[in-house]
Amino acid sequence: MGRWLIRLAVLAALGLIAVGLVLTVSRIGDFDLPQAAQRPVTFTHGDHRLDGTLITASEAGGVVLLVHGDGPQDRWADGGYLPLVNTLLDAGISVFSWDKPGVGASTGNWLDQSMPDRAGETAAALAALRQLPGMEDRPIGLLGFSQAGWVLPRVPTLTDEASFLVLMGGAINWQAQGRYAAIRRMQNDGQPPAAIEAELARQAVENRDWFEGSRTYEAYLAAQRAAGRAEARILSEDRFRFVRKNAQEDARAPIAELTLTVLVISGEEDLNADARDTVSVYRSLLNGVHPRSQFHLVPNATHALLSADRYNYQLPGQWPRTAQARFILSGRNAYEGDVLEIVTGWINDVAGRAP
Rank of each mutant, 00 (worst) to 15 (best):
M1H: 14
G2F: 12
R3Y: 14
L8N: 13
A9R: 08
L11T: 12
A13M: 06
G15C: 09
A18E: 12
A18V: 14
L23G: 06
S26V: 07
F31E: 05
L33F: 09
Q38I: 01
T42E: 12
T42R: 08
F43Y: 05
G46K: 07
H48C: 14
R49C: 08
T56K: 07
S58F: 04
S58M: 06
E59H: 08
L66S: 05
L66Y: 07
V67I: 13
H68N: 11
H68S: 14
G69L: 04
P72H: 07
P72F: 05
Q73E: 15
Q73H: 11
W76N: 15
G79K: 02
G80S: 12
Y81V: 08
L84H: 02
L84P: 00
N86F: 10
I93E: 01
I93C: 01
S94N: 05
D99S: 10
K100D: 12
G104Y: 10
G104C: 09
S106K: 03
T107G: 04
T107P: 05
D112R: 11
R118Y: 12
E121I: 09
T122W: 01
L129P: 02
M135R: 00
M135H: 00
R138L: 00
G144W: 07
G144H: 07
F145V: 10
S146Q: 05
W150I: 06
P156I: 02
P156G: 03
T157K: 15
E161R: 04
S163F: 01
L165S: 03
M168L: 14
G170P: 00
W174N: 04
A176Q: 15
Q177M: 13
Y180G: 04
I183G: 09
R184Q: 14
P192M: 12
A198F: 08
R202T: 13
A204S: 13
V205Y: 14
E206I: 05
D209G: 12
G213E: 07
T216Y: 11
Y217C: 01
A219K: 04
A219F: 03
A219T: 07
Q224K: 08
A227M: 03
A230M: 09
R233H: 06
R233T: 15
E237T: 07
R241M: 07
R241G: 04
V243D: 05
R244M: 02
K245C: 06
A247K: 15
D250V: 06
A253Q: 12
E257F: 12
E269I: 03
N272L: 13
D274Y: 04
T278P: 08
V281T: 10
V289L: 02
H290W: 05
R292M: 15
P299T: 12
P299E: 06
N300C: 09
R310D: 13
N312I: 03
G317V: 03
Q318M: 13
P320I: 00
P320N: 09
T322Q: 15
I328T: 09
S330Q: 13
Y335N: 01
V339N: 00
L340T: 07
V343D: 02
W346S: 03
V350G: 01
A351W: 02
G352S: 11
A354P: 06
